[in-house]
Design a protein around this nucleic acid. Structure first.
Lengths: 204, 204
DNA sequence: GCAAAAGTCTACACCGTGTCGATTTTTATC
DNA sequence: GATAAAAATCGACACGGTGTAGACTTTTGC
């Protein structure tokens, strides 16, 4: 990896490499969508980006690094959005907003999200990224539950543990539904929202 | 694959190959536990089973087939157990029993379960196996929800859709908790049970 | 215009997979 | 307990994907 991290910020003219790098990640996302992680080869990515394998290794040290960068790019999107929308006070509205944001992200980047989940065990870097994302979510859900009157605490029937389970429910449900269709995803979202509301005691 | 499927049934003396086959699957499970799927090589499995790579390919056509067989073996266990315990009528008892069974299975075979989930996208055979297992679960949960008064139907706030989401919640929560410790798994189970009960309207 | 940095390419060595044909061991039968 | 068929085992090979190395070309900054 050359000086990628943050060199971009104070640079007027964009380096050729920045172009390429984006091309690589875009190609990677396309391939992930149409072939899946295992079938996708480093040669495929390079070819799609208009360079040879050798050149690609100038930008990324391995296939895993490429995917990690792609996941990072995608997930950073999410972090920003969640920082913006976090101020809603009314529980019902907060829940609806959070679910809507999540549906959008999965509609736009479903394959990347699924790959991130699949690899978060085997690729530590991705595991970290995903864990952080999940933690943001869990914290948000916990806050809503507590505001709705669920007792704070980590016992099995208290806010924090429940939030964790609800987070995994949403993750997994979206994972499956996003493979089917946008409609299924929307329905799945509604179901998760309903269970969330029920668990929060906001629906009898 | 030689004539493996069900030849075992009407055979008094066990073939040498049956021994080996079990040794292969046992080794595979051990390796899955200690190295994980990616790091585990066909040579490793063969060595652990006391044969060479070449010999292993007499039993299984590929690494994936070995794992598929292992998953099948593990999951069949589950199917039997669930058939036995399915008769409980009282919702609260049925839920508790189901969760207990599931905890036991994950305690005994956590790594296999996790691998099955990881591979169910990429290995169609495993996908089928897992889907079938999930369907059994979802049907069971649906039945409990309906008996508890949730309206039958597939709309987002009706029994069948809710059961699906609850199933994924349990799967994912167990997936993570089983990596930590038996205690965590037990707690996670309690949390899932609580949310299930709440969703069923059995807890205010 | 010119050096240094950035980018690109081809060739190579390595490792894991799956196949093949030859060979040995086990099993059933007389 | 001899024997032929079936079952099991082995070593060697070809293939494909990965990652590295070194030479070469283009771009950038002064």
């Amino acid at each position: 990896m050359p000086g990628r991290h943050s060199a971009r910020s104070r640079r007027a003219t964009e380096r050729k490499g920045d172009l390429r790098e984006r091309a690589i990640l875009d190609t990677c996302e396309a391939l992930l969508t149409h072939k899946g992680y295992d079938a996708m080869t480093v040669g495929d990515i390079a070819q799609g980006a208009g360079i040879t394998r050798g050149a690609l290794y100038f930008y990324f040290g391995s296939k895993q690094e490429v995917v990690t960068a792609l996941v990072a790019r995608t997930v950073e999107h999410l972090w920003e959005r969640s920082r913006v929308t976090a101020q809603t006070d009314e529980p019902r509205q907060a829940i609806a907003a959070a679910m809507q944001r999540t549906v959008e992200l999965w509609n736009e980047h479903g394959p990347v999200m699924r790959t991130a989940i699949d690899l978060s065990l085997t690729v530590p870097e991705i595991g970290e990224l995903w864990k952080h994302t999940a933690d943001l979510f869990i914290a948000a859900i916990t806050a809503v539950l507590e505001r709705a009157g669920i007792q704070a605490g980590a016992a099995p029937d208290q806010a924090s543990a429940m939030a964790r389970a609800l987070c995994w429910m949403i993750e997994r449900t979206f994972y499956h539904a996003s493979q089917e269709s946008r409609e299924k995803l929307q329905e799945a979202s509604a179901t998760c929202e309903h269970i969330w509301l029920t668990s929060a005691g906001l629906i009898t």
